[in-house]
Simulated assay, not measured.
Amino acid sequence: MTRFSDDIVQAVLHHMNDDHADDSLLISRAFGDRGAQSARMVDVTPDAGHWVYTLDDDLGERPLAVRWSRTITERPEIRREIVALYDRACGILGETPRPH
């Protein structure tokens, strides 16, 4: 399976970590641990989004991979899948998603 180019991955990570840090934390709380204190996206693959999150226990970062709804191959699909994860995370945590 072909990975996304480094340029695409870095652009997605920059956007998520700079503009949507709260969304990464929400996703980490829903699919990782509800006690997550901070989170950041660290990779994008055709099969999953990858984050690390921290808890209040000083044990360091914990990895989190959340599978997409299907394998993706095109850059526009990344946004669609992250929005879908955000919506699912809101549902799991009882949050109202913001409009897209």
Rank of each mutant, 00 (worst) to 15 (best):
D87Q: 13
M41P: 03
D19P: 00
A89M: 01
D43T: 04
P46T: 06
R3W: 06
A36W: 07
I92P: 04
L25F: 08
I92T: 09
E61N: 08
T2A: 09
S38G: 03
I27P: 02
L13Y: 12
A48I: 01
F31Q: 05
A48V: 03
H20E: 07
H14F: 11
L26P: 00
Q37E: 14
T71Y: 03
E61R: 14
S69C: 00
M16P: 01
P97C: 09
D57F: 10
R80F: 05
Y53D: 05
F4G: 08
I27N: 02
G94V: 06
A65S: 15
R40M: 03
I27M: 02
A30E: 00
A84D: 13
L93D: 09
R70D: 06
P99S: 13
I82N: 01
A65Q: 14
T96Q: 11
R70Y: 02
D22I: 00
H100P: 02
R79T: 08
L25N: 07
T54H: 05
V42L: 04
P63A: 09
R79N: 06
R88T: 13
S38Y: 10
S24C: 15
R88A: 15
S24V: 00
M41H: 07
T73L: 06
G94R: 04
D57Y: 06
A48K: 04
G35Q: 13
R88Y: 01
A89K: 00
F4R: 02
T45R: 14
R75C: 01
L55T: 10
I78E: 07
R29L: 00
S5C: 07
V9E: 13
R70Q: 09
